[in-house]
Amino acid sequence: MTLEIITSDSLGPLRHGFFTRRGGASSGVFSGLNCGSGSSDQSEIVAINRSRVAEAMQVPNAHLVGLHQVHSAKVEIVDGPGTTPRPQADAMVTDTPGVALGVLTADCQPVLFADPDAGIIGAAHAGWRGALDGILEATIDAMVELGAEREEITAVIGPSISQRAYEVGPEFLETFLVEDPQYARFFVNGADDKFHFDLPGFGLHRLRSAGVTAEWTRHCTYSDPDRFYSYRRATHAHEADYGRLISVIRL
C-alpha cells in the first residue's frame, strides 16, 4: 500500500506532510506506518517505516530529524542531521536546506510552521500540557530569532483528537481556568461531571494570539482508526500499546 500524506496549500511550495498510518510495514496493533521508536514495535520495522518517510520527503534517513518528546516547551535549533540520543524537546526549527523535521503524535497536535520567504521552518508536538505551557509560542519565537517575520509565518495543525472525543474531568478544566478564566470557552459539558476539551481550537487560539496565520486540517485521530493511531482509542480498547504518526516539513 502506498503512503497517504495529508498536505496543506497554506504551507505553499515546501515539501511537507502529515502522514497517516497507511503504507507502513508494521503489524498487529501497530499495523501501518508506525514511526515511534519509543513504542514496543520491532525496531527494525520502525526503521523501515521511517526510511519510507525519508524517501517521500526526498532526504537521506539521517536527515529526517526527530526528538525525544517530553511534553515540554523546549525548542531545538537544528542545523544538520539528527543525533543519538535524540534531544529532549518538543519542537524544532531550522534554516538548513535538506533537513526534514519530524514530530510524532497519537492524539496530540502535530504543528508544522513555515516562513517560506525567509527560508525558515518549524515542527512542534503540542499536547494539552505543552500547548498550555507555551510550546507553540516558543517555536514561533525561535523562528523569529533565526530571521523569520512573525506576520509571515503560517502554522498548520494536523490530525489531532477532536473535542467530541476528548472527555476530561473537572480537575483538568480547573488547570486551564487557573491559567486564564477565558479558557472556559474551549470546554463543553459532557456526561455526569465530565467535560469535552477542544485541543485544536485551543491550539489555534494560542497560535493566532501569537501573531501567525493558523489552520487545522480538521482530521480527528480518535474517530478514524483506519487512517490514524490514537492513544486514547488504544487505551479504551485495552490495547498494550499504540502506533505513532509522523508529521514532517523540510526546506
Results as ranks from 00 to 15, higher is better:
Glu4Met: 03
Ile5Met: 04
Ile5Ala: 08
Ile6Gln: 06
Ile6Trp: 01
Thr7Val: 08
Thr7Ala: 14
Leu11Gly: 02
Leu11Ala: 04
Gly12Cys: 11
His16Ser: 02
Gly17Asn: 07
Gly17Glu: 08
Phe18Asp: 02
Thr20His: 15
Arg21Asp: 00
Ala25Pro: 05
Ser27Tyr: 08
Phe30Ser: 10
Ser31His: 00
Ser31Gly: 15
Cys35Thr: 08
Gly36His: 08
Ser37Met: 10
Gly38Tyr: 11
Gly38Asn: 02
Gln42Glu: 12
Ser43Lys: 15
Ala47Lys: 13
Asn49Ser: 06
Asn49Gln: 00
Arg50Met: 08
Ser51Gln: 10
Ala54Asp: 07
Ala56Gly: 03
Ala56Met: 00
Met57Gly: 12
Gln58Phe: 03
Pro60Val: 04
Asn61Arg: 11
Ala62Thr: 11
Ala62His: 02
His63Asn: 11
Val65Phe: 14
Val65Cys: 03
Gln69Ser: 14
His71Tyr: 14
His71Cys: 03
Lys74Arg: 09
Lys74Ser: 09
Val75Trp: 07
Val75Cys: 01
Glu76Arg: 10
Ile77Gln: 02
Val78Gly: 05
Asp79Lys: 15
Thr84His: 07
Pro85Ile: 04
Pro85Cys: 06
Arg86Lys: 07
Ala89Pro: 14
Asp95Asn: 03
Thr96Met: 10
Pro97Leu: 12
Pro97Ile: 12
Thr105Cys: 07
Ala106Tyr: 04
Asp107Gly: 11
Pro110Met: 02
Pro110Tyr: 08
Leu112Met: 02
Ala114Cys: 03
Pro116Ser: 15
Asp117Ile: 09
Ala118Phe: 04
Ile121Asp: 08
Gly122Asn: 01
His125Ala: 10
His125Cys: 09
Ala126Ile: 13
Ala126Asp: 10
Gly127Ile: 11
Trp128Cys: 05
Arg129Ser: 00
Gly130Lys: 15
Ala131Asn: 13
Leu132Met: 14
Asp133Glu: 10
Ile135Pro: 04
Glu137Thr: 13
Ala138Glu: 11
Asp141Met: 03
Val144Phe: 09
Glu145Asn: 00
Ala148Glu: 13
Glu151Ala: 15
Glu151Met: 14
Glu152Pro: 00
Val156Asp: 12
Val156Glu: 14
Val156Ser: 13
Pro159Thr: 05
Glu167Val: 03
Glu167Arg: 13
Thr175Trp: 10
Leu177Asp: 04
Leu177Asn: 11
Glu179Trp: 07
Glu179Met: 01
Asp180Pro: 03
Gln182Asp: 14
Gln182Met: 12
Arg185Ile: 15
Asp192Pro: 11
Phe202Glu: 02
His205Asn: 03
Val212Ile: 06
Ala214Pro: 14
Glu215Met: 05
Thr217Asn: 14
Arg218His: 07
Cys220Lys: 12
Cys220Arg: 08
Cys220Met: 02
Cys220Ile: 05
Thr221Asp: 07
Thr221Cys: 02
Ser223Val: 12
Pro225Phe: 03
Asp226Ala: 06
Arg227Gly: 07
Tyr229Asn: 15
Arg232Pro: 02
Ala234His: 00
Glu239Phe: 04
Ile246Lys: 01
Val248Asn: 12
